[in-house]
Simulated assay, not measured.
Amino acid sequence: MLRIAVPNKGSLSEPAVQLLKEAGYSQRRDGRALVHVDERNDVEFFYLRPRDVAVYVGQGIVDVGITGRDLLIDSGAPAIEHLELGFGGSTFRYAAPAGVAASVQDIHGKRVATSYPRLVTEHLAQFGVEADVVRLDGAVESSVRLGVADVVADVVSTGTTLRAAGLDIFGDPILKSEAVLIRDERSDAEKIAVLTGRLRGVLTARRFVLVDYDVPGDRLEEAIAVSPGFEAPTVTPLHGSDWQAVRVMVPRADINDIMDRLYAVGARAILATELLAVRV
């Protein structure tokens, strides 16, 4: 039975559960349950603190898990990043009051408050910078005003929270993180392959839609140039006509532009259909 660790709370929890559901796995009905067995798929789910997922995977207690790249690195666990999952994106940055620091080198000898001490320590070491890294579990942006630190290292989305605390972001990003599937190198490769294929199928389906349209035969190549597809379109002659029916996968983000351009080259009956899962 494949053992999978899932975040039990936080910003990664709900998207992770939804991804697994779309991949065909049942999930717990009681939000307080710590374990759920999906007998049909021969899988056992463990709902753990996001910070603990990498530790359990790295020790081989569970086979795979979903966590953030930042949490994986900060844990120091020997788990392996296996697959990017396309949600939970974040950027990790340094920030300080104006005039305190403008580059990583300016952090030398200062106090840095963060919830990710290992990650920050390793990043500073890459630049030969020595600093006093102060671990905090929350409200990192308040640490400078309270006199605990000179600089903070924290997850940044818009930067509004840091600016409200009188801090300016500086330097290049420490890390760009997102949710990832991680694995223990000793895990059953065959069972993980099934899980990986399902997750990739859902992620691909989220990025593409299926488009069907009819086009005159003499405009077919123009239409295909507009919508070349994931690999190549399927083309079928329409009965009793010189028109062709085309089916193709196109990027979801481009769908309206592609439909406009197809119409402009003479395509008609243009339909876009949602995909639930694919295997490519």
Rank of each mutant, 00 (worst) to 15 (best):
A223K: 03
H239F: 15
A253V: 14
A245G: 11
E221F: 06
R206F: 02
D254Q: 11
D212E: 14
A225K: 11
T234P: 05
T236M: 14
A205V: 01
Y213F: 15
V202S: 02
L238S: 11
V248K: 02
E222H: 04
A223P: 01
A223T: 01
P251V: 08
E221T: 08
G240P: 13
D214Q: 10
A232T: 09
T236E: 15
R219G: 10
V211A: 05
I255S: 13
V250T: 06
G229R: 08
E231V: 14
T234C: 13
R206S: 05
V226M: 06
R198N: 03
S241K: 12
D242I: 11
A205L: 00
P228H: 11
A205D: 02
D257C: 08
Q244N: 12
V226Q: 00
L210T: 08
V215H: 00
A245K: 13
I258F: 04
M249S: 14
V215A: 01
F208V: 03
I258H: 04
A225H: 09
H239A: 15
V209W: 05
T236A: 15
A253P: 09
P228K: 10
E221M: 10
V202R: 00
T236H: 15
A245L: 13
A223G: 03
I255C: 10
T234S: 15
P251A: 11
G217N: 07
R206W: 01
P228I: 08
P251R: 10
D260P: 04
V211F: 00
T234R: 15
P233Y: 06
R252Q: 12
R252V: 05
W243G: 13
V235A: 02
A225S: 10
A205E: 03
R206L: 01
E231P: 01
D254W: 10
D260K: 12
D218E: 07
D218I: 01
V211S: 04
V226N: 03
R200C: 00
V248G: 01
V215N: 02
A232L: 08
R219S: 15
E221C: 02
E222F: 00
V202K: 00
L203N: 00
V215C: 02
L220V: 05
R247M: 08
R200Y: 02
R200E: 00
S241T: 12
L203E: 00
A232N: 12
A225F: 07
D242T: 13
A205C: 07
V211Q: 01
A223F: 03
D214M: 05
G229H: 07
G229D: 08
D214W: 10
